[in-house]
C-alpha cells in the first residue's frame, strides 16, 4: 500500500514537471491547451508505466525491503552472537584473571613455604655445625687437658722417683721394710 502511494506521488511529480515549462512560457489560451495536452500525454505515459512496470517496481522494492529486513535481522543476530561471545570472552578473561591470581597466590605461598623450609633447614644445619664444632672443641680441650695432666703427672712421678733414689738412706730403707712388715702382719 505504501509502495502504491509512493508510485502515485512520483507520477504526479513527473506530470507537474512536464507541464511546468509550458505554463512558465506564458501565453494565453494556446499555452494552456499545450499544457493540458502534455499533461494528458504525461498521464497516459505515467499510466502505461504504472500499468506495465509498477508491479515489478513494487515487487522489486518489496524484495529489497525484505532483504534489508533480513539483513538487519542477520546483523542483529550476529551482533547478539558477537555480544554473547564477547560476554563469554570477558567472563573467561575474568575467570582467567581469577585463576591467574589464584595461581600467583599459590606460587607465592609455595615459594614462601619453600623459603621457610630452606631457612629452617639452613638454621638447623647451622645449629648442628655449631654444636658439632663446640663438641669437637670441648673434646679437643679435654684431650689436651688430659694429655697435659698426664704429662705433668708423669713428670711429677719421675721427679719424685729421682729424688727418692738420690735421697733414700739405709735408715729409710729399713723404716720402709719395717712398715711393710707391719702391714703384712696386720693382714695375716
Amino acid at each position: 500500500m505504501k509502495h502504491h502511494r509512493q508510485t502515485l506521488t512520483l507520477g504526479w511529480v513527473a506530470l507537474l514537471s512536464l507541464t511546468a515549462p509550458a505554463f512558465a512560457a506564458g501565453g494565453g489560451e494556446v499555452g494552456w491547451s499545450k499544457t493540458i495536452f502534455h499533461g494528458v500525454n504525461a498521464a497516459i505515459l505515467f499510466y502505461i508505466i504504472y500499468r506495465f512496470f509498477g508491479p515489478k517496481v513494487t515487487a522489486g522494492l518489496q524484495s529489497k525491503s525484505k532483504q534489508v529486513a533480513r539483513d538487519i535481522d542477520e546483523a542483529t543476530r550476529l551482533h547478539a552472537e558477537a555480544s554473547a561471545r564477547l560476554a563469554a570472552a570477558e567472563a573467561d578473561l575474568a575467570a582467567l584473571a581469577g585463576k591467574a591470581e589464584a595461581l600467583l597466590a599459590d606460587l607465592r605461598r609455595e615459594g614462601e613455604a619453600e623459603r621457610d623450609k630452606l631457612v629452617a633447614q639452613a638454621k638447623a644445619e647451622a645449629e648442628r655445625i655449631t654444636a658439632e664444632a663446640e663438641r669437637t672443641a670441648r673434646s679437643e680441650i679435654a684431650r689436651v687437658k688430659a694429655r697435659l695432666e698426664a704429662e705433668l703427672g708423669e713428670m711429677a712421678v719421675e721427679a719424685a722417683a729421682r729424688a727418692l733414689r738420690e735421697k733414700t738412706t739405709p735408715a729409710d730403707q729399713r723404716r720402709l721394710a719395717v712398715e711393710y712388715l707391719t702391714r703384712l702382719e696386720e693382714r695375716s
Binding site: G153, A161, L176
Partner: peptide
C-alpha cells in the same frame, strides 16, 4: 716405692 709411684702415676 716403685709400686706406690706407679699407683700415683695411674691416679694422675
Amino acid at each position: 716405692v716403685r709400686a706406690q709411684l706407679e699407683s700415683l702415676r695411674t691416679r694422675l
